[in-house]
Design a binder for these strands. Structure first.
Lengths: 198, 198
DNA sequence: GCAAATAATACGACCGGTTGTCTTATTGTG
DNA sequence: CACAATAAGACAACCGGTCGTATTATTTGC
C-alpha cells in the first residue's frame, strides 16, 4: 500500500518539476527527458503516468494554479472585515515573490495562453478552467469589498475582476522584459487604491 | 544592383513569414525549415541572411511592431482635434482584425514576452525596444487627449498608457482561451470610456 | 496455505523524424 | 580567373513516442 502511494508521489513530482521547467523555458522549450531526469524517472515510464505531453501540460496547468487559489482563499477567509486590505496584502506577497525570482517566470497561465492555447485544444480548455476558477475567486473578493464600501459599486465586481486579471497579466509580461517589479506595483496601486475606489 | 535588392527582398519575405508562423506556433514551436519552405529559400541559405535563429527572432519582433506603429501614428495624425476618438477607432480596428483572425494569434510581443524573454537576452532586448516605442506613442496620444479635456489629468499619461498596454495584453490572452473578443471590448470600453475619463 | 498463472507496472533501448548549425561545393559576377 | 554569394547536404543532438522485456503484484486453483 506504500507502493500504491508511490505512483501518486511520482505523478506529483513530475507535475511539480513540470511547473518549474515550463515556467522557466516554456512548453516547447522543455523536453520530457529534462523533466524526467530532474525527478529520476526513466523515459519509458512517462507514459505510465500521463497519456502524452499535451495531456501532461493540461495537468500541469491545474497543478500550478491550485496553490494560488489556496493562498488567495486563505487571505480572504481571515480578513477582519477588510476584503480590500486582504487583497492588497495578497498581491504584495506576489510582488515580493516576483522579486525573489528575479523577475523571471511570471505567470505560467499567461505564458502558456500565449504559447500554446492556439495549437493545443486540450491545454486551452485547461487554461480556461484555471483562469475561470481564479477569476471567480477574485470577483467574490471584490464583491465583498463592495459590500464593505471600500470598492465602487457603479461597476460590477466581475468587470473589475476581469480588468484586474488582465492588467496583472500584462504587467507580469512587462516585468519579464524590463526586469523590474514596478509594472506590478503601479498596476495594483492604480487599480486597488484609485480606479476601483468609490 | 537588382541582385543587391534581391537579398533585401528575401530577408523581408523571411521576416514576414516569420511573423506569421511565430504568431501561430510560437518561437520554439516553429522550425526554421518551416519558415524557409514557406518562402522557397533553401535551408542552407538561412545563415546568409541571419546569424542565428535567436537573431532572426529579434528582427522578427521589430518587423512585427512596425505596421502597428504606422497605423496608430496615422490615426493620430489626422484626427479632427479628437485624439480620444482616434484612439477608440484604432482599437475598434484591432478588435475587428482579431475577429477576422478567429481569436488566434493575439499579439506577437505578448506571446514572446511570455515564452522566451527569460531565456533569450537578445529577444528580450528587442521586445523591450518594441514595447517602449509603442508605449511612448500611446502616451503621446493620451497626453493629447488630456489637453483636449477628454481624458482625466489627475493621472499621468504615462501611467495610463502602461495600464492600457497591460490590460490590452491580458485581454488578448484571455481572448485566445475564450475564443471571443469580448475581453477586448470590455477592456477598451472600461478604460477609454470610463476609468480614464475626467 | 502454497504454488502456479495472470495481470500490472517499470524500464531502457530504440523508432523515425526534426532541430539549429556548419562545412563543403557550386554558382554567378567583375 | 579570382572572389564573394548562395546552395547543398552532412552533422550531432534532440524530439515525442513506442517497443519488448523484466520485475513485481494480484488472482486463481487445489
Amino acid at each position: 500500500m506504500a507502493e500504491k502511494n508511490q505512483k501518486q508521489i511520482n505523478r506529483e513530482n513530475l507535475l511539480s518539476q513540470g511547473v518549474a521547467l515550463l515556467m522557466a523555458q516554456g512548453y516547447h522549450g522543455t523536453g520530457l527527458k529534462e523533466i524526467l531526469d530532474a525527478v529520476n524517472i526513466p523515459k519509458g515510464s512517462f507514459y505510465n503516468y500521463f497519456g502524452s505531453k499535451e495531456n501532461f501540460g493540461a495537468e500541469v496547468i491545474q497543478h500550478y494554479i491550485e496553490p494560488f487559489i489556496q493562498e488567495l482563499s486563505g487571505h480572504m477567509q481571515n480578513n477582519d472585515g477588510n476584503a480590500l486590505g486582504a487583497l492588497a496584502r495578497y498581491y504584495a506577497e506576489l510582488i515580493e515573490g516576483a522579486e525573489k525570482a528575479e523577475f523571471k517566470g511570471g505567470c505560467l497561465l499567461g505564458n502558456l495562453m500565449g504559447e500554446i492555447s492556439d495549437t493545443s485544444p486540450l491545454c486551452q480548455a485547461s487554461l480556461q478552467v484555471a483562469v475561470k476558477r481564479y477569476r471567480d475567486l477574485l470577483r467574490t473578493a471584490l464583491q465583498q469589498a463592495q459590500e464593505q464600501g471600500t470598492i465602487r459599486t457603479d461597476k460590477s465586481a466581475e468587470e473589475m475582476a476581469n480588468l484586474l486579471v488582465d492588467s496583472w497579466q500584462g504587467a507580469l509580461l512587462r516585468m519579464k522584459i524590463e526586469k523590474s517589479t514596478s509594472p506590478l506595483k503601479y498596476c495594483i496601486d492604480n487599480l486597488l487604491n484609485d480606479l476601483f475606489r468609490p
